[in-house]
Design a protein around this nucleic acid. Structure first.
Lengths: 231, 231
DNA sequence: CACCGTTGTATCAATGACGGAACAACGGAC
DNA sequence: GTCCGTTGTTCCGTCATTGATACAACGGTG
């Protein structure tokens, strides 16, 4: 089972999505709507109409010329480049999240302050963003949100904005080409949990992480999400 | 302009999305496909067919009974509950990312090691995950990925897996109900950048953050995304 | 037995999205 | 003037998706 995500940027009830980004990029490559549409296997009339629709919501995206030495053509505006850049950032961020490994913990909400909740879990009380009214929840802590520290150099609680902090031991270091998944075992009074952190190989080496190493893991409350559990 | 996201879980070329989650939840609420479909304004025949399709890909999701004291009915299996829980986690994580403020920096890739790149930016060299072949890039650093530290208590570079570290000063603290956006100004040799971190009010108070406070910001290379720039 | 309310199954019609096709117009080049 | 390759605009036919509808079957209840 894989997670997939379809990103969209919305303005005035019009959504800019993957096919739209493809169209703009093809226009940039070919210099015309005709060639772009043909290259994408789309009808030119539809592509033109879509550009009109997008422009009505997002502002000027293309400059179209009919006639001339080359017969005419279409170029992207700076606004289109900005929109494409923003879309690319969103897509990269969302794809990264969809692909990330996570540690899932069940827990009970014991205190609430606005959207922030304190959740009792097998490995202790953790802070997370939670929906209103949730009681029994699951916490998701993604591998790219977990920072690892050498135990004697971990930041003191009062000196950092990372509100969650656990001590555990390394169960495995799975090295990739330039990053590694570090799997931790954290023991608590009410149980045990396995965490995973995605860190650079440089961090693995600098921290001297190997099986059975002791390590401190920190992660932000504002990057930790709780969702309600039913059934 | 708002970012929107459509999450999906995929298995065997079948995608489980928002309408599917709605259907399962309605079945759980009503105890029958008939009532669920009616409540959602969908055709029962289609809902039944969709369940068949989803079960073929994701395994048993419902137990259906025809006849009986109540005429029959349908209940969710444990597998369905697990699927819904996973979908909820994915949706929460993606929605959080789509809604997060970001700091965007333009830069140039100066070194590459697998998917990890070193990028020269106005505020110095930063580490990020980058697509292959990118030269001129934009870095996106989300507010929920930035950890703030008191300058005298920031973790030393060798003792933490957070590979990016900058010193800046607080320009503004925008307090919400339980979390705050802390805006930082970071000066570099080649320019200046404004960062934003999303932290709890507790962190603001513990770190004593106020306008002009000096602060150290750290963020992981594996949570920092670079995307190519054109045009 | 009839009735109830559900599930199992099949069919029909409507709708929206889409590509294909075609005519008109433009501004250079020859 | 003709030709070229583009844009501007309109219309047609196809296809996938969907809700509505209807008959059959089930297992209790009275």
């Amino acid at each position: 089972m894989d997670a997939d995500v379809t990103p969209e940027l919305r303005a005035d009830d019009v959504s800019f999505g993957v096919p739209d980004a493809r169209l703009l990029r093809a226009i940039d490559d070919h210099g015309s709507v005709s060639a772009a549409a043909a290259g994408l296997g789309r009808s030119r009339a539809r592509a033109t109409g879509r550009l009109d629709e997008l422009e009505a919501a997002f502002g000027s995206l293309v400059e179209r010329v009919r006639g001339g030495a080359s017969g005419g053509g279409t170029e992207l505006t700076a606004g289109a480049h900005d929109l494409l850049a923003r879309f690319a950032r969103l897509q990269a961020a969302l794809s990264g999240v969809a692909a990330a490994e996570e540690c899932v913990l069940e827990g009970r909400v014991t205190a609430v302050d606005g959207e922030l909740a304190t959740v009792a879990t097998p490995v202790g009380a953790l802070r997370a963003l939670a929906p209103e009214g949730a009681d029994r929840v699951q916490l998701s802590i993604r591998a790219d949100a977990v920072t690892l520290h050498a135990p004697d150099e971990a930041p003191p609680a009062g000196g950092t904005s990372a509100r969650n902090r656990l001590t555990g031991s390394v169960r495995a270091v799975e090295r990739g080409e330039s990053v590694a998944h570090v799997r931790l075992v954290v023991d608590g009074e009410d149980g045990q949990a396995e965490f995973v952190a995605l860190v650079t190989l440089e961090s693995v080496d600098r921290l001297g992480l190997t099986t059975d190493s002791e390590v401190v893991a920190t992660f932000k409350a504002t990057a930790t999400r709780a969702t309600g559990l039913v059934g």
